[in-house]
Design a protein around this nucleic acid. Structure first.
Length: 290
DNA sequence: AATGCTACCAACCGCTTGTCG
DNA sequence: GCGACAAGCGGTTGGTAGCAT
């Protein structure tokens, strides 16, 4: 398929965003809404590519972003979700409202991977991105060519992080996070699972359709189109969809452990059902169930 | 104080996927 | 069915902070 035009056109800014750029982007989106990322920079007066604008907005500027530590419960959920889903950061992020895929990915690579490695000895490679077992995760794979840079330690535009640098191995604070719609899997009395097809957030059209649900549907399709099985009732459209108001009822920021635990358990059940009864497991699906 | 090294994370890059004409 | 475009996703890179020497 065609690729989006490369962002590296001459004259376009790259690198850290300035407060001025942030303001321009925020102002434009507040006035005109999300979407049309390609034409947005020009209209907003930004010398950035659309992808860059989108990323900045999604990961940092969105008004519904909250900032805060990754709680131990979230930490635990990330670990367990990752064990189920692998490197599907957006899926995992979808289960952790207030967390972006980028954030979770970084958090995994910098904290959890190491943590698990220490706990389990060695076996913490991810299902989808196995690295050499000898290599250090994350940091080991990115030894800096530039080495130390103590001299010019001027701040880049992340001043809000300054108050949040705990010692190593701690959860790092204020980080921009995108609040994604919470697509809660639901269990009905027959223990079948369905997913909402609506977004609870003001997302773009694309986002609505390329939502975690869609990804889950993709996941389901990787399990062999289970959704098409009425018996399975997996992603059947006609029943028991969670509407936005339902989702509001599930705390938008399920900070309590019970909610997170429930999310995990539902995923766990979902992925550990006896699929062999219904489908032929794809290799990917199998990889998720190891 | 200067330098080296590592950890962290924002941002980028390239690929994939979905939509539309 | 095909190609172009828009958007999303995950891996990787590069800059900065902080600790060690």
């Amino acid at each position: 398929m065609g690729r989006a035009p490369c962002c590296s056109k001459v004259g376009l800014h790259k690198g850290p965003w300035t407060p001025k750029e942030d303001a321009l982007l925020t102002k434009y989106i507040q006035a005109h809404g999300e979407g049309q990322w390609k034409s947005l920079p020009k209209k907003a007066g930004l010398l950035r590519c659309g992808k860059s604008c989108r990323l900045r907005w999604m990961n940092y500027l969105r008004p519904d972003i909250k900032r805060g530590n990754i709680t131990p419960e979230e930490d635990d959920l990330i670990i367990r979700m990752h064990s189920l889903l692998g490197n599907r950061w957006s899926l995992i992020a979808g289960r952790l409202p207030g967390r972006t895929d980028n954030e979770i990915k970084n958090y995994w690579n910098t904290h959890l991977c190491k943590k698990l490695k220490n706990q389990t000895g060695e076996d913490t490679e991810t299902p989808n991105s196995l690295e050499s077992p000898q290599e250090e995760p994350a940091s080991g794979s990115k030894k800096k060519k530039n080495g130390g840079k103590k001299k010019n330690k001027q701040k880049k535009n992340k001043g809000d992080k300054d108050n949040a640098e705990p010692p190593k191995t701690q959860v790092y604070l204020p980080k921009p996070i995108r609040v994604k719609a919470l697509y809660l899997p639901r269990t009905d009395s027959n223990n079948t699972y369905t997913f909402d097809s609506n977004s609870a957030s003001a997302s773009t059209n694309q986002e609505k359709e390329e939502s975690p649900l869609t990804k889950e549907s993709n996941l389901a399709s990787e399990f062999g189109n289970v959704g098409e099985s009425d018996d399975f009732g997996f992603f059947s459209e006609e029943h028991d969809l969670v509407n936005a108001s339902d989702m509001e009822c599930h705390s938008y920021f399920p900070s309590d452990h019970c909610s997170l635990q429930q999310l995990y358990e539902e995923y766990y059940h979902l992925l550990n059902m006896d699929h062999s009864q219904f489908i032929e497991m794809s290799s990917f699906g199998e990889s998720l169930l190891v």
